[in-house]
Every structure is written in structure tokens, then in C-alpha cells.
Design a protein around this nucleic acid. Structure first.
Length: 536
RNA sequence: GGGGGCGUAGCUCAGCGGAAGAGCAGUGGCCUUUUAAGCCAUUGGUCGAAGGUUCGAUUCCUUCCGCCCUCACCA
């Protein structure tokens, strides 16, 4: 899309120097070819929406404003109070005769009721909405002509007394109005808002101002992230940032996105996990670190999966997965208490109780309970896998076990449950239990059938780690790294303190705490397939 | 990738073989306390796209595009 800056012209012709018309042509050339034919005058800048009659109407109003000396796209407006604060200045019991203090506010016009020489409008800012009462005799005939050029969606600044109308509505009785910006496109229907889910995601900027509650959801998301940071900082953790672009995609079993660094002519991967870098920092002596940032996985999309998603990873030296369970409970329970109204929340009509301690159950036992036989009963596991149509001949036995587990057990786990002690073969970065070398000290926290967190006692034996990396690479699994990360092995060889590590899916946590059915509802701009070129 | 559903005006939605509709928004008019303001008049459509069946297709069929649900995938 062509840049907005400098597009608007108030006059038709005669005031354009040659250089400017050349500029206009350059901008126009960037506009989609099919649209060009519709514009025949160089002095009229191209605007790809200008064929829409509703847009034309509003462009015309913008010109009329400019002709009156009003900048249709406005300027800085100082001293505006939050509308919520303005409302608070009008006490419920304020007497009719009291002289209220003047207020100054700015916002977007969401409703407009025109009564001829009087106009009521509802002005919304980030904090709320307030009615503005505009009377021609109060603001003057000249300013009232500007009011007549207002549309729903425009931005406006107002100044005036705050008091109730005869009908009891707290209102700004405007003494002065300042035009702050034209909206060329109409706002959605006033009663139903923007309901089409595709448009809500594609045009989130509209969703945010048109649908009540959407903004609040994202404000809550920000508050949850802020509190997670302070929870961890209060316990001595240091927030760090590690590379998003990796030469070797390690730290999780996932297919990576591939990119390319031109300067060195080398392929790079967007990270699937920051894990290996964070553990290098444990070697470096930072001891307690966390990173709260994006991961990228080139895999399926669903109501619980976005190609880029936000992950919290935490590493604590001298701890183990038991310690990580306690930390997870604290983080999650604290977030629920502060941002979901209590430890017992409602998610999609079901109550979920985050009161610690969460249920702890062993993988092996959950499996036996659900399947009716032990997970090392090869014949029966394979038979059941075939029944469930999750059988893969090429897969190692533990993967088959896990496929059965995920089909039979995960869907039953609604209340927060730590599933503990996974088969070691599923956990190439985790340390085995001292009392059982076949089992890794690892847990997954399942809530509402979703994996919310994943943690283990970190493997810090460089010899064992290298062997496991080699086995992974040899498996040629497309989710395994393509090569061994020898630098990571080298880091371990310098001595990594025993440690617990934790990953928490932040989008999913926010889904639970804001009762959002889809991950797209908690990501401002979720990934959507692109539409045809030139589509608005 | 498989299965199911959806796509009609800027927005919210009807219509589903026989002349494309409503409400809101917009436009013109009346109205100096309305709040889903009201009243009168009125503009606006490649019915997602392309093919096919039919005398006739928004409607039935096929393919494609996009979204949602679901399964698979996601240690």
C-alpha cells in the first residue's frame, strides 16, 4: 500500500508544483495495477479505496474541512483527560445547580444523534465512553459547520463542563471542539459490532475499537505478562533475550521455518525453542534466567496452535523438576487469582480449579488406568495403537506408547494435572530418574485437555547428551535437528549445574484466564492465509 | 492433507430454480436534552471466483479461493 503521508490535497489543481506531481506519480505506481486506470488526474493522489462511494463521501468532507482551514487529519491535542476520569468527576448525586469543573477529552465518535441545531455524540477513548452534548449556540455557528462534517469513526477533541443531562446521562457540554481526524471508512454496525470472525482477525484494528471486551482482553494479557515478570524477578530470575535465528534448530522436536542470511550466504532457522541458549547461560553462571518471547514452529494450525506463539522458559540452577512444579503452581495460581477473579475459574462453561497443589499423576499409571494394561506390554500397546489408528510402523515403541497416551489420557484431563515421569526416550534433554533409568524426570501440565507447561530436570551430562543428539540426528526424523549442536555439548562440558527447566505456553494460559476458545482470540494479529493481491 | 459447515450492500442478516431484500451506516430534508433518538424521501450488489446443468442459477453440480469446526500432524 502507498504511504499515507502527504496523500491528501485540499485543492483540485493549480497549487501543485511539478516535483509534487512527480511524487504523486511515484506513489501511484506502487498501487495495484488494476486500480490505476480509474485515476486520470495526476493532481489527484491515488487512493485504492477511493472508488467506494462511502469513502468518496468522506473524502469530500475531508476536503470541505481543509477548505475551512481545518486539518482533516488533525494535530497534537494536549491535556486530554482519560474519559473514565472525566466521568468520575461527575458525582452521581451532583445537584443541578452546581458549577462543574471543565473537562478536556479526546476520542473516537462511536454514535451520533443529530437534532438539527443540537448534536449528541458518544466519544470513546481507551478508558471508556462519554456522551458529548453539542449546541450550536454554545460553540458558535462556525464551529457547528465543522460538527456537520463529522462522521462516525472520526476523532474529536472536546472541552466543556461535565454534568448530567435532564435524562441523567453524564455528558460533556462542549464549549469548544477540535477536529482530530477523519475516518474514511465507516465503522461497523452500532448494535452488533463486527461479528464475522475472519474480519475480526484480519482487521483487528476495527475489532479492537468496535467490539467491547476485545481491548480488555489484550489489556489483561499485558497485565498477566507483567505479573509473570515481576513474580520471577522477585525470586531472583533474570530476564534475558537469546537469538531468534539459529544455525541449528534445536531445543524442541518441531519442524522449523527456514530463512537465509544474505551477508554470509547461509541458511538460518527461526527458533523452535530458546532452551539450548538459556542452558548455556546456566553454564555461564547466571543461575536463574527466563525468557518470555516468541517461538516459531512450522507445523499445523488449530484453535490451540499458531505458527508463532509466546513461550515462557525458566531455568533454575540447583533445582529439579519438582521445584519447577512448585514454581509452575505459583505462577499459574497467582495469575488466575489476579487476572481471572480467583483460583476457581470458568473456561468454556466448565469450572477449573487452580488451587495448589495441582493433581500429580505418573505417566505410567495414567496410561495403565486408561488403557487397562501396562505401557511396556508391547503386544497390547501395538494392538491398541492400531485400533486407535495412531499406529506407525516406523516409529520407535515409545512414540507409539505416547500416541496411545495422547489419545486415551490427555482428553480426560480437564483439571490441572501434572503428568510426571515420561519414558526417557521421549525426552532427549532430560535427566533420567536415579531410581529408574528408563524414566525421565519430566512433567507436562495438562489443563482443559491442553498442554500448558512442560518441564524437566535438565540433562547436564555432556557425554550422554552428545550420544542422544547423535541418535536424534541419525533417526532422520524431520522434527529432529539436522545436525548435532556441538557447541552446546561443549558448553555442558564446561560444567552445567544441575537444574530444573520449565516452559509455559503463554497464549494458552491467557486463553484459560480470559475464557477464550481460540488462540487467535489472544494473539493480536494471528496468522491468516493471505488473500489475493490488491484485496483490502 | 481428509470430513463437515459457511461466504448475499460498508456492517448485521433474510431469501435458496422464475424481476436481489430488511435493519443499521450513507445521502437530501425536518427537529436546540437525545441515548439502538424520531419522522419523510433516497443511494448503494460481479449474491466469494470460474466452469457446468437448465428455457432460466444467488439457489443445483464441479473446481478453485478464504474462514470456522473436526480428524490427522503438533515428543
Amino acid at each position: 500500500m502507498a504511504p499515507l503521508r502527504g496523500r491528501y490535497r485540499c485543492g483540485r489543481s493549480g497549487n501543485k508544483p511539478r516535483a509534487s506531481s512527480r511524487g504523486a506519480r511515484t506513489r501511484r505506481d506502487r498501487v495495484v495495477g488494476a486500480r490505476r486506470s480509474g485515476i486520470d488526474s495526476v493532481s489527484e493522489p491515488a487512493f485504492h479505496l477511493a472508488e467506494d462511494p462511502l469513502v468518496k463521501e468522506r473524502l469530500d468532507k475531508a476536503r470541505k474541512l481543509a477548505a475551512r482551514g481545518v486539518d482533516p487529519f488533525g494535530r497534537r491535542f494536549d491535556g486530554a483527560e482519560a474519559i473514565a476520569a472525566v466521568r468520575a468527576r461527575c458525582p452521581e448525586d451532583s445537584a443541578e445547580g452546581t458549577v462543574p469543573p471543565p473537562a478536556r477529552a479526546a476520542g473516537r465518535i462511536m454514535r451520533l444523534r443529530d437534532h438539527g441545531k443540537v448534536v449528541f455524540l458518544d466519544l470513546a477513548d481507551r478508558t471508556g465512553t462519554i456522551q458529548v452534548y453539542l449546541r450550536r449556540d454554545d460553540i458558535g455557528a462556525e464551529a457547528f459547520e465543522v460538527v456537520r462534517l463529522l462522521d462516525l469513526g472520526d476523532h474529536l477533541g472536546v472541552e466543556g463542563a461535565v454534568k448530567k443531562t435532564h435524562k441523567g446521562e453524564i455528558s460533556i457540554f462542549a464549549a469548544r471542539v477540535v477536529f482530530l481526524g477523519k475516518a474514511l471508512l465507516p465503522i461497523p454496525e452500532k448494535w452488533h459490532g463486527l461479528k464475522d470472525v475472519e474480519l475480526r482477525y484480519r482487521h483487528r484494528y476495527v475489532d479492537l475499537f468496535a467490539n467491547p471486551g476485545v481491548r480488555d482482553g489484550f489489556v489483561r494479557r499485558a497485565a498477566i505478562l507483567r505479573d509473570i515478570r515481576s513474580y520471577l524477578e522477585a525470586r531472583g530470575f533474570l530476564e534475558v533475550e537469546t537469538p531468534m535465528m539459529h544455525a541449528i534448530a534445536g531445543g524442541a522436536a518441531a519442524r522449523p521455518f527456514v530463512t537465509h542470511l544474505h551477508a554470509l550466504d547461509m541458511p538460518l532457522f527461526l527458533r523452535v525453542a530458546p532452551e539450548l541458549y538459556l542452558k548455556r547461560l546456566l553454564v555461564g553462571g547466571l543461575e536463574r534466567v527466563f525468557e518470555l518471547n516468541r517461538n516459531f514452529r512450522n507445523e499445523g494450525m488449530s484453535p490451540r496452535h499458531n505458527p508463532e506463539f509466546t513461550m515462557l522458559e525458566v531455568y533454575q540452577a540447583y533445582a529439579d523438576y519438582e521445584e519447577m512444579m512448585t514454581l509452575t503452581e505459583g505462577l499459574v495460581a497467582d495469575a488466575a487469582a489476579r487476572h481471572a477473579g480467583g483460583l476457581k475459574i470458568r473456561y468454556q462453561g466448565r469450572e477449573i480449579d487452580f488451587t495448589p497443589p495441582f493433581r500429580r499423576a505418573r505417566y505410567r499409571e495414567l496410561f495403565a488406568e486408561a488403557a487397562g494394561f501396562a505401557l511396556d506390554d508391547r503386544a497390547r500397546v501395538e494392538a491398541r495403537a492400531k485400533e486407535l489408528e495412531v499406529w506407525e510402523a516406523a516409529a520407535p515403541f515409545e512414540k507409539v506408547v505416547n500416541a496411545v497416551f495422547e489419545t486415551l489420557v490427555e482428553p480426560t484431563l480437564v483439571q490441572p494435572t501434572f503428568v510426571c515421569d515420561f519414558p526417557r526416550a521421549l525426552c532427549p534433554l532430560a535427566k533420567a530418574r536415579a531410581d529408574d533409568p528408563e524414566v525421565a524426570e519430566r512433567f507436562e501440565l495438562i489443563v482443559s485437555r491442553m498442554e500448558l507447561a512442560n518441564a524437566f530436570t535438565e540433562l547436564n551430562d555432556p557425554v550422554d547428551q552428545e550420544a542422544r543428539f547423535r541418535a536424534q540426528v541419525a533417526s532422520r526424523d524431520e522434527e529432529a535437528p539436522g545436525e548435532v549442536d556441538y557447541d552446546y555439548v561443549r558448553a555442558l562440558a564446561h560444567g552445567m549445574p544441575p537444574a530444573g527447566g520449565l516452559g509455559v505456553g503463554i497464549d494458552r494460559l491467557v486463553m484459560l484466564l480470559t475464557d477464550a476458545p481460540s488462540i487467535k482470540d489472544v494473539i493480536l494479529f494471528p496468522f491468516l492465509r493471505r488473500q489475493g493481491a490488491g484485496e483490502a
